[in-house]
Simulated assay, not measured.
Amino acid sequence: MSARARRSWRRMRPAPATVLLLAVGLGIALATGHHSEPGEVGRQPVAAPPLTGTTLTGARFDLAAARGHVVVVNVFASWCGPCREELPLLVETARRWSPQRLQVVGLNLRDGPDAVRAVLKQTHAEDLTVLPDPDGTRAVAWGVRGVPETFVVDRDGRIVAHQAGVVSRQWLQDHLSPRLESG
């Protein structure tokens, strides 16, 4: 090995140690700084972000005015296959538990009104209250990372459960029943 190559090698030797040190530090930081999602075991409820606007039917919706109700906020899009699959379950859930003061609200992400109306008709979910979010700003405020995502907001306006991905009948039962029976 030439003298020049040895000098280059010496300069490079600290690099693997530095990379290893950074990787270990990052791993420790991530492990100790883990933030659980709302609804995870041990997670305290957090205040729901504001959610207001005009629904697809022209009515006014304001989550703050729904205090005293349990509210399911489902973020969906017409182009999302799993979202389409869960829409009928959400409508069924709203019908079943609305006498116990449950409201189900769809937050539609980045669709035009015609696309939303079409998917609601195709899935027999025309009764669902839908708040359009054409630019995604409302979803961002809620910390949405993809669709579908569902949040349960308790009677005091706090997010008490969160599901990234499709909700099941059992998930809804587990998270809604205790809150609706106690109120």
Results as ranks from 00 to 15, higher is better:
Ala3Ile: 00
Gln122Leu: 05
Arg169Ser: 12
Gly165Asp: 10
Pro99Asn: 06
Leu21Arg: 02
Trp171Thr: 07
Thr54Trp: 03
Gly136Glu: 00
Gly146His: 01
Gly143Asn: 07
Glu126Ser: 15
Asp114Glu: 14
Thr52Phe: 00
Ala77Val: 00
Pro45Lys: 11
Glu149Gln: 14
Leu26Gln: 15
Arg13His: 00
Met12Ser: 03
Arg13Trp: 10
Gly33Ile: 03
Ser36Gln: 05
Leu102Gly: 03
Gln100Lys: 13
His162Ser: 10
Ala3Pro: 00
His69Ser: 15
Val24Asp: 03
Ala31Leu: 03
Pro45Phe: 08
Ala66Gln: 15
Val72Ala: 07
Val140Ser: 09
Leu90Cys: 02
Ala125Thr: 04
Leu20Cys: 09
Ile28Ala: 15
Thr129Glu: 04
Ala15Asn: 07
Arg84Thr: 02
Leu21Ala: 15
Asp156His: 10
Leu131Glu: 08
Val46Thr: 15
Gly146Ile: 03
Thr52Glu: 04
Pro49Tyr: 09
Glu149Asp: 14
Gly165Pro: 09
His162Arg: 15
Asp156Val: 04
Val70Glu: 08
Pro14Asp: 04
Val91Ser: 02
Asn74Gln: 04
Pro38Arg: 12
Leu22Cys: 14
Pro88Met: 05
Arg10Met: 14
Ser2His: 06
Ala118Asp: 11
Glu92Thr: 12
Pro113Tyr: 03
Thr137Gly: 09
Trp9Cys: 09
Gly58Pro: 05
Ala47Met: 08
Pro99Trp: 04
Leu176Phe: 05
Thr129His: 04
Pro178Leu: 11
Val152Ser: 08
Val75Asn: 07
Ala66Leu: 15
Val119Trp: 10
Val167Lys: 04
Ile28Asn: 07
